[in-house]
Design a protein around this nucleic acid. Sequence first.
DNA 1: AGACTAAGTTTCACATAATGGAACCACAGG
DNA 2: CCTGTGGTTCCATTATGTGAAACTTAGTCT
Lengths: 261, 261
Amino acid sequence: MASDTGADGTVGKALDVLDMVAARGRPVRFSDLQVGSSYPKATLYRLLQTLTHQGMLAYDEDRGTYTLGLRLVRLAHAAWSTSSLAPLARPYLDELAAETGETIHLAQLDQGQVLYVDKRNATKPVEMFSSAGKVGPAYCTGVGKAMLAYLDDGALEAAIARQSFHQFTPETLDTPEKLKAELIAIRDRGYAFDREEHEPGIICCAVPILTRTGRAIGAVSVTSTTARTDLAALEAQAGRIKDSAARIAAVAEDWRFPEQG
Amino acid sequence: MASDTGADGTVGKALDVLDMVAARGRPVRFSDLQVGSSYPKATLYRLLQTLTHQGMLAYDEDRGTYTLGLRLVRLAHAAWSTSSLAPLARPYLDELAAETGETIHLAQLDQGQVLYVDKRNATKPVEMFSSAGKVGPAYCTGVGKAMLAYLDDGALEAAIARQSFHQFTPETLDTPEKLKAELIAIRDRGYAFDREEHEPGIICCAVPILTRTGRAIGAVSVTSTTARTDLAALEAQAGRIKDSAARIAAVAEDWRFPEQG
DNA sequence: AGACTAAGTTTCACATAATGGAACCACAGG
DNA sequence: CCTGTGGTTCCATTATGTGAAACTTAGTCT
């Protein structure tokens, strides 16, 4: 999947290459990339050189492999702290985690996928980057559905087109139709469930974070297991979660005027 | 500043723009960027469009501002988990933190700057992205000097050229000469100190993480305050830190063969 | 209102920068 | 010594990006 069919210009291609490297998740050789890439040898080679020269990739001389560069980590730090809800939402997540004692996720929608930007774990201490930055499917997670439910028609269709509808479990909503029906229900009640749709035994209740104009800018969820609780019990928390979501929405609304300069 | 004088090609410029946005650390309007950018209006505009279209930037319709995009966060997660020492070093850092009870930093060198990739805080729980991804000066931090001390001549000169030598405190080594002398001493003894060179009252002892060939791929440090301890006490820990660094080096050495495929 | 100004967007002739087929190099096996 | 595979460089061709200037809005001042 050379993915981004609409790769505009040279930078589009370069970023596409970055994604390719990222997708492997381990050091890759030139030839690893060449197969499956639509770019001709020389072009791919030059793109890699440029990216490496720019610090977006790192080249291991000895092994002849490329990995993602540290410049990305630096940029992402800035991205995370200025563009994500995480820094704002932190105190509210802490609170919610303390009160519920369950796992909390904060997610945003990125190109039709769920991007987790923060997390509180019931038991273990927080796990740095290893959780923030993770992506997941939108059509079969609580946070994902909560956000999809508030997209306008155009954006929704675009997002749906990007879903794989892979059937992770027997409960997974595996067609656009089922999903759309579910989204209406979610809009109605104001929060979403994950009924073991992504992983067996894992359930959650998720609430969208809405702007005044009704756009979903993120979602918060409380996750648990069927062993420990059930949907009804989680639903009882919905009000509490909504409350947190509303408060996050409120600070997010103000925050866009960091300085009026 | 327009920094990257050697901005090769279009992607170089695009990435340069990304950095510019990142540098402000808050939503920026078009005109904010235009001043201080050497690119002509139309060019800058097109670059911004492309980056936005690619999800590297996000554009806020209402305010007319750009911020870094979430795609970066996604990429960085991959970068952090495949290219940084953090995932490998984690258990050793935990151990070191537990034993010393002080603040632990894990850093790598990126374009002449110190990039913190992980951290253990004495008291508070870990702070996600907010610490990882941060950058700091190399010439006046323990981890920075520890790594500089093991650069070869060419790389060292290049790195020194990138230092600001801003005098943060009376103790800051504010010339290349003083720094070079210090680096020799560090190489001799195998670890570096920060003698309140960056922040008054903050001291640390840092050890480079060395490959078999003697290249520094990162550094670990134990940080404390003059109120709580002193350099002599920190130096007593040096052996312990060296031990951690050596063990991290060992796993890092193997790790580059994730699968021989 | 009407006349200015500043911020953002589009155009278009032009030149630079990316393209990719093919040739080249280096090295490992047979 | 030949042959194949992985990686790097050339270079004529052309697509792409360039940027001065013109154009739209959306405010602001008088």
